[in-house]
Design a binder for these strands. Sequence first.
DNA 1: ACCTGAACACCGTTCAAGT
DNA 2: ACCTGAACACCGTTCAAGT
Lengths: 186, 186
Amino acid sequence: MAVPPRNPGSRPAPTETEILDAALALLDAGGPEAATIRRIAAAVGAAPGTVYTYFPEQAAVGRAVVDRLLGEVGRATTGPAGSTWQDRVEALALGLRARLIDHPGAVPLVLNGPLTGPNALALRERVRRLMSRAGLTGEDADRGLYLVSVYVLGAVALDLELEEFCWGLRRVLAGLAAWKPAGDPN
Amino acid sequence: MAVPPRNPGSRPAPTETEILDAALALLDAGGPEAATIRRIAAAVGAAPGTVYTYFPEQAAVGRAVVDRLLGEVGRATTGPAGSTWQDRVEALALGLRARLIDHPGAVPLVLNGPLTGPNALALRERVRRLMSRAGLTGEDADRGLYLVSVYVLGAVALDLELEEFCWGLRRVLAGLAAWKPAGDPN
DNA sequence: ACCTGAACACCGTTCAAGT
DNA sequence: ACCTGAACACCGTTCAAGT
């Protein structure tokens, strides 16, 4: 019953990245229920307990997957220089929507978590700056950010088509634009 | 080892209502993970398998709980006769928010389901009629309904305070009101 | 220091057996 | 016809034991 230190000739110790890759693949293939610790471990050729070397609990794996997706949104969305804040926020919202639709199994993870990973915070800060450029400062900028976040997450959870999504998003952004300034209705 | 047909002197066979009561109580007390089939059965003094006499699977219990909550929203919200459609929609939105905040453990159930129970459909029809009164007809009424639903669910998922919630909701309704009509900005 | 794999305390769901 | 409770195939998490 001698146990080889690691499966001989097989993979070396898994990377945190490999674990997240496996988790996302399971999520994509089998929905939110499929990314179990045991299956993730099996996918990287390790014992279940090994996952706990990298993450303190199952939920932490989910949070890391979510933050990776948010990082991709931030990296993929580079607004054209001359665009308005609405266009830039819309681009980020569409990017987030696209990532979530690519990985529907991850949507429940996004809806449950408090979204406090580093990429989440960076994205939040970025949108806050766009909001303030729109005249929404301080608390109003935060509220505007919440409004947009809420809209995107809810729209994905309710399976809005792209057309409906854009229809509503523009309405939301119009509502925000009309708020502070004295109204310049062109 | 003779087994009495039912726990002697104890409860008779559980009602569907009793099962839903127990599920909601567990949800309230212990969050979304707590309402397991086994615990629901224990709470009504029945064997686990008994639950399957009433519901074909665990998810069906969750859907029934959600539809009960939506029914309460509809029954509790009777708009004052002379109010505008915005006021009525806002009242329904606030009612839904209140129910969900009373039962936070049920929020994930609302976000996952397709919301097709009878009470969900009735509520949907009611909001659709309000929307059409606002000049949003046909597809636009549906989109407006989606927009409001999306907003409420997302706002609850992200823990918006009442003040933020109303701030955003009015912005959303203003965006809707400004859509079809030629604009009567008072 | 890190990994294994057995063990613990749970799950949802099914179904033969009882009444 | 309906309910029981054992059984099956899973879970997340812990931890002694090995290297």
